[in-house]
Write a protein that binds this DNA or RNA. Structure first.
Length: 890
RNA sequence: GGGAGCAUAGCUCAGUUGGGAGAGCGCCUGCCUUACAAGCAGGAUGUCAUAGGUUCAAGUCCUGUUGUUCCCACCA
């Protein structure tokens, strides 16, 4: 047996982790004798080190993996990182800017070299952080979305989709960032409300001098590209004008007035300028009416040739100048200040410009079907129904996916152009153009959207497109665990790629968890400086405490706040567990587990029954992914039932060193050890380090708790009778403690003798057999148990105790009866207490009577419930009578 | 504008088939009782946002209202 320090000390965590690694406990291999259980880590972006959100996300996964591993599954948790195309490129661009360099200064190859250096640095940091937190990933299988195997999978999928005709090039209006010079996906556009201006202008109507149509716009610079004015078809103000033309003065172009029901007659003037090249809605109107598309802007946001004399101006300057020109021509009316939503790029916060671009698209209609079907048929489950609805909604409104990006960091699109403009798509650089045989080929400069590679993550990490044994054994995975905002970007895309290339959904369960916020409920953000660094918590308190903090006190699907007070509470709990184990060890010196036939006492049967139901509950809660609840149950059990009650209950037996009581003592030791071991196992997935440490201190047969067997529910251990007995004893103990507190009796004071007047034979036997237990908990030198009496009352009991010293009569519960505690009676206090008690009982009784007198309840409620209420009625009536008798006796 | 949440003790939050309102922190009282003061024992505190409805029975189900958060879309 080992000796433990007096207080919990997390400093040994790294040592324990090193041992696990050395022993290879995290490794998973194809094993036909076991059922696989697989989780793919959501690969963290290599843009930055990990924050507490990652700690939370991965703790959830580690709990599941560790539980399943102990339950005998072949558990694989595959780790890795994501190249995070745009965000990483932005970070590296910022970094080289500090050296006064730009991407173009370095050139593509040298720039990518710098990004790889960044990747080595941050990828390494991330992996070491994950290890610091104790995560049991199979590190031999670590993957990166741009490593050789995964890149091969990406190219394979691109080529196959292209050959199938699902990937096409198209001119489409895309979100364009004029700063980053790239398209960005809808998901990367942030919408923020801001102050803006609504400018009212009028265009002269062609051929009708003095006639105008008035419209409003927030973006006058795009007027250069207007190709129509639209009004609502039923707007009577304008019906006469439909079909006529107006003139755009700056460019002197005639455009038609058209009718489209998109226009809201109530907004602005009811007339809208239509700029298909610079607005998504206008683009759609343009499609419907076959309007020309006039792009007036360069990639950097300046006006192009189409803008005549505005050419070369920035969009901001062009706006000012156009307002001036319109004013000079008497066509400007007024400016309103409004708040409206502006789309900005979530990386650089520059206002997004919709632009017409030639892009690569993936057709979604067919791919989306099986992904949607998986959910509607119930094959794919979310931990909460509402997240499933989000998934479903997105898939029903899905559009084609723009998969090309004008950046360097990422998987370069395997498309090659010949001078004739033919496209050859191939995994390896082709020698000649597949159409015309030209040997002068140039690869597309664009790279793929970062989510293209992560969409393949569940199978590319297992060796796909090769047909590997790993892939066969570990795919599909069991659980995917991520945050809500990732549902569209990632969950959906993994689903359709998995269905398409594996013929099977990549996972059956999705766990969506909430966000960890700061103590004021704000999101943690660099700009606010309110982020919590996991390392800070780990250095001060250890990884176990961090993990427990994130998992306790909250349902995992809702957002939670990070409080240092909670961290301290969790640390305190670790210390409690540490000391409970220390206590057990101190009392096990002479214990050997070859003796299993020692007679168990009722409290042993009670705690065994309790840990047994706890095992059932915790296992069920983990299986249904209610990890906050499962964790809470274990903590409550250990602290309340095991430490505060059971340990106190066994002290008399443990301290009884007489040889004739050796059997009793053995039984207590055996039970203590057994229950503690089970509790440690149940807690291990949440706090792996401390439980390993304590497990090893308690026994030397198994070399790790990680691979020990998960406790199982045993119906034979269920013991309702023992639970009832202990409830009676606890109730009696509480009554005495209550009296002590009210009368301010020092806890160290031992009452001479407490006399128990049980209500029935059952209670008499109970108290008679567990006198030592009761006296220890209640603080008495001796216990006298009287014959049972149904005729309990203060008066009769008092009468029977004439020889006893003056004392206090304490009610101990309906069955347990009365306790006579030697102490001076304080009549006034006692009156107050009893009056309160009486009121309480009267309320309870009124409620029960109300139910039992209710015809509806009696005829419709289940019989068991009615019986329960009847029992309560009898119980409360009897209790009330006693209290009243006591009151009148005073 | 569309969708989804949330509103329970002073604070932070549990409460998943409807059947006597819970925890932690904080607060008050008494204790350094030979595992633990990072502890022990005891205590106070709630018209479960609001108005209706369903039901024998509603924190729990339905509807409206108010406040609040998030996601998606977006107004020329």
């Amino acid at each position: 047996m080992k000796e433990l320090n007096r207080t919990y000390d997390p400093s040994r965590e790294s040592e324990i982790y090193a041992r696990w690694m050395e022993k290879g406990y995290f490794k998973a291999k194809v094993n036909p004798d076991k059922t696989p259980y697989t989780i793919m880590i959501p690969p963290p972006n290599i843009t930055d080190k990990l924050h507490v959100g990652h700690a939370f996300n991965n703790t959830i996964q580690d709990i599941l993996i560790r539980t399943k591993r102990m339950q005998g599954y072949e558990a694989l948790w595959l780790p890795g990182t994501d190249h995070a195309a745009i965000s990483t490129e932005v970070q590296v661009v910022k970094a080289i800017a500090k050296e006064g360099l730009t991407k173009d200064d370095l050139g593509r190859d040298a720039f990518l070299e710098r990004v790889w250096q960044w990747k080595e640095l941050y990828g390494g940091t991330i992996i070491s952080q994950l290890k610091l937190m104790g995560f049991s990933c199979d590190w031999d299988r670590e993957r990166f979305t741009m490593d050789e195997g995964l890149s091969d999978a990406v190219l394979e999928v691109f080529v196959r989709l292209y050959e199938e005709g699902k990937i096409y090039r198209g001119e489409r209006l895309v979100n364009w960032c004029t700063k980053c010079q790239t398209t960005i996906s809808d998901a990367e556009v942030e919408h923020e409300d801001g102050e803006g201006h609504l400018y009212h202008f009028k265009y002269p109507i062609h051929g009708e001098a003095g006639e105008y149509i008035t419209f409003a716009t927030t973006r006058p610079e795009t007027m250069l590209g207007d190709t129509a004015i639209a009004v609502h078809p039923e707007d009577e103000r304008y019906t006469a004008l439909i079909g006529k033309n107006v003139i755009i003065p700056m460019v002197n172009r005639q455009i038609p007035i058209i009718a489209d029901s998109y226009v809201d007659p109530a907004y602005g003037t009811g007339a809208v300028k239509v700029t298909p090249a610079h607005d998504p809605n206008d683009f759609e109107i343009g499609q419907r009416h076959n309007l020309p598309i006039i792009n007036v802007m360069n990639d950097d946001g300046t006006i192009n040739n189409a803008g005549t004399h505005y050419k070369g101006l920035t969009r901001e300057d062009a706006r000012t100048k156009i307002i001036e020109e319109m004013t000079a021509k008497g066509l400007y009316i007024k400016t309103e200040t409004i708040t409206h939503a502006k789309g900005t790029h979530d990386r650089c916060h520059v206002v997004v410009e919709p632009l017409i671009k030639l892009q690569w698209f993936l057709k979604m209609e067919e791919l989306a079907k099986p992904a949607l079907e998986a959910y509607t048929s119930g094959k794919l489950k979310f931990n909460r129904e509402r997240f499933g609805k989000v998934y479903q909604h997105w898939l029903t409104i899905i559009r084609d996916w723009c998969i090309s990006r004008q950046i360097w960091w990422g998987h370069r699109i395997p498309a090659y152009f010949c001078p004739e403009g033919h496209i050859t798509v191939a995994k390896t650089t082709p020698e000649v153009c597949s159409t015309c045989g030209n040997t002068n080929l140039r690869q597309d400069d664009d790279t793929l959207d970062t989510w293209f590679s992560s969409a393949l993550w569940p199978f590319s990490t297992l060796g796909w497109p090769e047909k590997t044994p790993d892939l066969d054994y570990f795919y599909p995975t069991n659980v995917l665990c991520t945050a809500q905002e990732i549902i569209f970007n990632w969950v959906v895309r993994m689903m359709f790629m998995g269905e398409k290339y594996m013929g099977e959904a990549p996972f059956t369960n999705v766990i969506i968890h909430g966000t960890i916020r700061d103590d004021k409920g704000r999101k943690m953000a660099k700009s606010l400086g309110n982020g919590i660094d996991p390392k800070e918590v780990i250095e001060k308190y250890g990884a176990d405490v961090l993990r427990l903090t994130l998992l306790s006190g909250n349902a995992i699907d809702s957002d939670s706040r990070f409080y240092w007070e909670r961290v301290e509470f969790c640390r305190n709990f670790m210390n409690k567990l540490w000391n409970a184990t220390r206590f057990v060890l101190m009392n096990l010196e002479d214990y050997s587990d070859d003796s299993c036939n020692n007679p168990l006492e009722v409290e042993d049967l009670w705690i065994l029954s309790r840990i047994n139901s706890l095992t059932k509950e915790v296992t069920e809660k983990i299986d249904s992914h209610e990890l906050g609840m499962s964790t809470q149950k274990i903590v409550d059990f250990i602290w309340d039932e095991f430490c505060d009650w059971y340990i106190e209950m066994v002290k008399p037996r443990l301290y009884a060193k007489e040889p004739e009581r050796a059997m009793e003592r053995r039984a207590a030791q055996e039970t203590l050890r057994k229950v503690l071991m089970s509790a440690l196992k149940l807690l291990h997935p949440v706090t792996p380090f401390i439980t390993e440490d304590l497990f090893l201190a308690l026994q030397d047969k198994e070399e790790t708790i990680m691979l020990s067997s998960w406790p199982t529910f045993d119906k034979a251990m269920d013991n309702i009778e023992a639970e009832n007995c202990i409830e009676h004893i606890k109730s009696a103990v509480r009554s005495v403690r209550n009296m002590r507190a009210e009368k301010q009796v020092a806890p160290s004071h031992k009452f001479e003798e407490i006399i128990v007047q049980p209500a029935d034979e059952y209670a008499r036997k109970l108290f008679e057999s567990r006198k030592d237990l009761f006296s220890a908990l209640a603080g008495a030198k001796s216990i006298i148990v009287k014959s049972p009496s149904r005729e309990l009352s203060h008066a009769t009991f008092d009468n029977s105790l004439k020889q006893s010293p003056k004392g206090e009569l304490v009610y101990a519960g309906f069955t347990a009866g009365y306790l006579y505690v030697p102490w001076t009676v304080d009549t006034a206090n006692e009156k107050v207490r009893l009056t309160k008690e009486k009121q309480k009982l009267q309320q309870e009784l009124a409620r029960v009577d109300g139910k039992l007198n209710n015809q509806g309840f009696m005829s419709k409620a289940p019989e068991s419930l009615i019986n329960e209420e009847r029992e309560k009625q009898a119980k409360f009536t009897a209790m009330l009578e006693k209290v009243e008798a006591e009151l009148s006796a005073l």
